[in-house]
Design a protein around this nucleic acid. Structure first.
Lengths: 218, 218
DNA sequence: CTATCGGCCATACCGTCGGTACGTACCCAT
DNA sequence: ATGGGTACGTACCGACGGTATGGCCGATAG
């Protein structure tokens, strides 16, 4: 049976991670002190160092938490059945929404590679959001929806574009409009990868139908 | 006339910036101490704090130096005359090469947004590499080479994709092969944005002609 | 019910590093 | 010559990441 003591311990660990997510998101990795994290969780640094080997490990725990939460939102969309193209487009829109979460933005996209080191970050991402994008691209290629591009590289590029789009949205004066433009543009980019003469059945949504996007340019 | 004293001072400043670029590239922002930077420049922290208001300012000076050097390599290519499409493609290849510089990679692409803050970094980038990409995209749109996409957003996405590609190359086991695949893929993406029926004169290079890129996939 | 054992956490402390205060040598104009 | 400004060096402070150590308390055996 679940020991009481173990419940306490787990609860403090969770509190520490939650506190870390909050502070890392608000003030960044360097701007957050461990005393502060511990204080917000109503414990001391001793407890923190009991559960985590150091600041990096705490960050990685926060990273995992944020990623897992994001995965739950994306997983059911991408892994569900349906036409690969439709699925991928739905995934794109969902990913843009996920990126609007400030915690995801800062911890996963921005500080992740710097704090964990790019190699370690990349490795972690394999099991999370990048992995899903890669899955989608692979599905599009193997189903013949888009051209026979190198999946690994193209997924990375797409991931980079999506991340940049997410940053753009997060920093935009009008996030809603920016969000629409980013979704439209990404869709347009992926559409450009479709085979010249689609062998697919019914023609799925092209970016052209998003009506509310006539842009100004001198 | 140029005072001797002023020459000394300027030289000291340059030495500090060079030292900073080197150490920031090798050990990152957080992993580099100011004493170390000063020591490598054969001065003390007092000199450093005379020339720069703090660690951030030193980083931004290093950032500017690296960016300026990169710009000199790109500027002549992008701003030169010639067919917009050819120019843009040459710019893409040149940018990929620039990204192979570890200093550019780490200081500008990875740590820049984190250390300077995304907003400040974005502002600085307007005058540097992002500005050039934006220029190229705008030229492609206004010359009718590619579709009427929102320039600002599309440039951001492209920039993100390029940065991701650069990271990929830098971390790849076979950088040369990765470099080729990235260049090919990026070219393919941009090609996907071309107008369906090109009104342009002679058909410029399509990504298809890069022969040495047949990829394996199960 | 008692003893004690071990996991969980608090407290005190250390080393490092960014930043500050202040002293000093040197140059220049008046 | 001399007052002032520039270009540093030196000594020091506070904050913070990390460590060592000790105490509390629930779990478990007898």
């Amino acid at each position: 049976m679940r020991s009481r003591r173990l419940e306490y311990s787990e609860s403090t660990r969770d509190a520490l991670v939650d506190s870390a997510v909050e502070l890392f998101t608000k003030r960044g990795y360097a701007g957050t002190s461990l005393d502060e994290v511990a204080k917000r969780a109503r414990v001391t640094k001793g407890a923190l160092y009991h559960h985590f080997s150091g600041k990096q490990a705490l960050f990685e725990a926060a990273f995992d938490t944020v990623e897992t939460k994001a995965m739950r939102r994306l997983g059911e969309i991408v892994s569900g059945p349906g036409h690969p193209w439709e699925t991928a487009m739905a995934g794109l829109r969902a990913y843009v929404r996920v990126c609007l979460d400030p915690a995801f933005q800062r911890i996963v996209v921005h500080e992740g590679p710097v704090v964990m080191g790019w190699a370690r970050w990349r490795e972690a991402e394999e099991h999370f959001s990048y992995g899903m994008i890669r899955e989608s691209v692979a599905a599009l290629v193997s189903s013949g929806e888009i051209e026979d591009v190198p999946v690994e590289v193209m997924s990375r590029l797409l991931y980079g574009a999506l991340s940049a789009g997410a940053s753009l949205i997060a920093g935009a004066a009008d996030p809603r409009k920016a969000s629409e433009e980013v979704a439209w543009s990404i869709t347009r980019v992926v559409s450009g990868l479709r085979r010249p003469v689609a062998a697919g059945a019914d023609a799925p949504a092209e970016p052209g139908d998003r009506s509310a996007s006539r842009r100004r340019r001198r």
